[in-house]
Write a protein that binds this DNA or RNA. Structure first.
Lengths: 232, 232
DNA sequence: GTAATACATTAACATTTCCTTAAGAAAGTT
DNA sequence: AACTTTCTTAAGGAAATGTTAATGTATTAC
């Protein structure tokens, strides 16, 4: 469960791309911009999105090809196509791949926004595998990542912040195993750099503080690699 | 093998309506044609459909009004609007009511067909008829969402306003679990933005005031996610 | 036709939660 | 020793929420 819905926008025209990105950002979406199909596919694989907006006409790899690749991996994420001209063929191909909608440029931004809302609202929680599991037991704790609460068997219940929650969830899913820094950073912070890394350290410290109620649990650092949640 | 998908087509132009009906019939849909909003609503109530295609400009009762009435009864059936002109306002209103898509006349029939397929293939509609249930007991309260009354065992009976009522119902249906803000906003307010969100907060405050007669009941906020009605 | 009522939205201000950044210490690596 | 990475606490600001009051608007009562 995330606060903002995230959108992958793949658009080769840098001016138009930026304007559209800004417009969607103002309207409370988290937008990742890619300038061609290749970059689009890389970014798609790097983190998780709720919706993709793909320009069809693009150099190197066009939007339809990209859509096919995305559909091979994920057959539920909604796709919206942008077509420069009213190319009926492209539109029909798009639907065949499994598009949810298309818009012909130039289009009205308010209508795009309405479409996005309509599409995202109709599928409230499609990401089944992720939202299915949210109850974990480890050590003396039980952890509900949906309600964002961490309960100690004897004592208190802690309310976790979104970041604490996501990080703990990833640690628990990799219990006793290494959680690579980059992986966590790209998934939770959507970027891996010096600052996000420092921020992650802060959150590791916070989690350690919660977990210290059970002496046997430890979050150990693997220098240069990541963290590992383990018992004993 | 499943039966044919059925479509309710509401279109006042008899020529166009017949042509479109025939075209869809050829393409293996079962089509019911209504010539205005009033007849459309009657037919909608008479049998079950998988999809509605509504012309907006119609005498007696226009498509938007009809859509609102349909949405009151059934908030999952997909709606497609037909607009004679490119009336942006109508399109936006349509989306606000909960349209799935729109087409501006004249439109390409193949594209309409592609849209219909796209919408119907999306997901099997699980029609949970939660309208059957309207009596709830929780804590020291009994709550009738049909009569919009909330009764405390010992003391008073409160009359709830429509919004209070809907919100409390959603909280109760998700008792002890998270009611995501977005879900509630999109269902009750039909839009999720800053203002509707603030409005929802006001209603949460009102409900808390009612519920405080039972100390053990709480509406907890999950920051950035939503609310949770819980006991103890 | 005007007043009263009910309801919803918006405003205003207080409070809480959250995240990032900074900064200095500690630990690990070469 | 020099350098990099990690640990931890704290401060500051942005965003979300809590709450009450004011405003707007439609319906009902008289």
């Amino acid at each position: 469960m995330k606060t903002k819905k995230s959108i992958l926008l793949v658009e080769d025209d840098p001016n138009f791309g930026r304007i559209l990105k800004d417009y969607l950002t103002i309207n409370n979406y988290e937008v990742t911009l890619a300038v061609n199909g290749i970059e689009g596919f890389e970014k798609f694989n790097k983190s998780e999105f709720d919706l993709c907006i793909l320009d069809i006409m693009m150099p190197f790899k066009d939007g339809l090809t990209l859509a096919r690749e995305i559909r091979e991996i994920n057959d539920i994420i909604p796709l919206i196509f942008l077509t420069a001209k009213n190319l009926k063929d492209d539109v029909l191909k798009g639907y065949k791949i499994g598009a949810d909608d298309y818009l012909t440029k130039p289009f009205d931004s308010e209508i795009l926004l309405a479409k996005i809302k309509s599409i995202l609202n109709r599928k409230p929680n499609v990401n089944i595998d992720e939202n299915d599991v949210f109850e974990f037991d480890f050590g003396d704790f039980s952890f509900n990542s949906k309600l964002r609460i961490l309960t100690h068997k004897l004592g208190e219940t802690y309310k976790l912040s979104p970041k604490e929650n996501q990080l703990l969830k990833m640690l628990v899913l990799n219990f006793d195993d290494l959680l690579p820094r980059d992986i966590a950073l790209n998934k939770i912070w959507r970027d891996a750099n010096y600052f996000t890394s420092r921020s992650m350290d802060v959150y590791i410290a916070k989690l350690r503080k919660y977990l210290e109620k059970d002496f046997t649990l430890k979050i150990i650092n693997v220098h240069g690699e990541g963290f590992r949640l383990m018992k004993e």
